[in-house]
């Protein structure tokens, strides 16, 4: 007989077949009449600017990583909450320790400044009228007096 995880596997397989079947079926019966105006990327009806393949800033990587950590935390929290009544005080303290470790990591990331969104500081060119100054200095010192 199937174990409990075996049933989950069966669900996964059926789900995959369901999705793939939908794609294959629509590929079979859909009309294929593409023309340039139809294939333009959708930007709320406006004239699209550039391609829809854009690069995301590498800074999102850290944010995504932290999100993933806390996502997994929630995944751990749900089964814990389901059997919380049975496990009692020990599980509660255990979860507090787990959350504390994650929070320390979060504080560390925050303190290291990985969450800061440092904007590029443009180097604004400063025009220094050096020539004029030197001329003025020379004039002042009397060198230019004919």
């Amino acid at each position: 007989m199937l174990t409990d995880f075996g049933r989950v596997l069966v669900f996964f397989i059926i789900g995959a077949i369901f999705v793939a079947g939908g794609f294959v079926m629509s590929w079979i019966i859909r009309p294929r009449r593409g023309y340039p105006n139809k294939l333009t990327s959708y930007e709320c009806g406006e004239e699209p600017i550039g391609s829809s393949w854009i690069k995301f800033n590498i800074r999102f990587y850290v944010v995504a990583l932290i999100f993933l950590v806390f996502d997994v935390e929630v995944v751990f929290l749900f089964p814990w909450a389901v059997v919380f009544q049975k496990l009692g005080m020990f599980a509660f303290l255990e979860m507090l320790v787990f959350l504390a470790i994650l929070l320390i990591g979060y504080a560390y990331v925050w303190a290291k400044g990985d969450l800061d969104w440092d904007k590029p500081k443009p180097q604004i060119p400063v025009l220094r009228p050096r020539m004029k100054d030197t001329l003025a200095e020379k004039e002042h010192s009397g060198e230019l007096v004919a």
Binding site: R30, N37, K38, T40, Y42, G45, E46, E47
Partner: peptide, 13 residues
């Protein structure tokens, strides 16, 4: 013009 573009972008039928 937007309506025309949106209509073009819709799936057929």
């Amino acid at each position: 013009t937007r309506i025309k573009r949106l209509y073009d972008q819709m799936s057929e039928p």
